[in-house]
Amino acid sequence: MSLLLIVLLGGLIFYMIKAGNSFVTIKITHWLLVVYTSVLVLSTIAVAVLTEETISQAKGGQEVHDEGLSSLYTNLSKGQIDKADEYLIKEIKFDNYQNQTLTITASPDYGSQVFVEKKQGEDSTVELFLYGNELTVDGYDFSNIIKLPDIELAGHTLSIVPIRQNIDLSIATNSYPIRQFTGEFIQNHYFSSGESFIYLRVPRDLELNAENVYLEVVDK
């Protein structure tokens, strides 16, 4: 459809020039118009090719995301991780953990919640699940550009190292004549981002220590 409009525009200009040409010779204004519209047409084609993939529209608005985050917290605190699959970002297994203690450490200002579930049976595997709320801007999902924290198990220390990120986004929106009828707003932006939770499944006799994390033992 855009191409059709472009062809129509080109035709209109061509016709105008041709019509004008019957009175006078082509002057620089005609060329200025032709060059300008050509640049606009080329830009239109280039935009389709060069800009990022169309970002997906996340479900719902601010309230839906807040509710989702709240229910995620509730489900994790009750150990109902089967209900939290939607927010699962990463799953890591540390097999055959033989130490008697596990120290979970993070950067002082990380401040994230770590839920711990002690396994019922004999199992020496430490399982880690990283859950998170996606990054959305005005309901559009930009989660793919968020860098996940580095999680390492060295000896008896599980360290969580979040990565500082300054994200600069440029978003091309519809013009006002379109927004007037689609109901989009150029003001009142809303974000949802950044909340992440770690859920650990550890052997039942493991002694846990926490440094700079809020540890919450799940009582199933």
Partner: peptide
């Protein structure tokens, strides 16, 4: 939007001013 580890700055482009 700013957090402990993630800061997001968004710039919006539109031809409104041109219109």
């Amino acid at each position: 939007m700013g957090g402990s580890f993630v800061n997001v700055n968004v710039k919006y482009y539109s031809p409104d001013l041109v219109l």
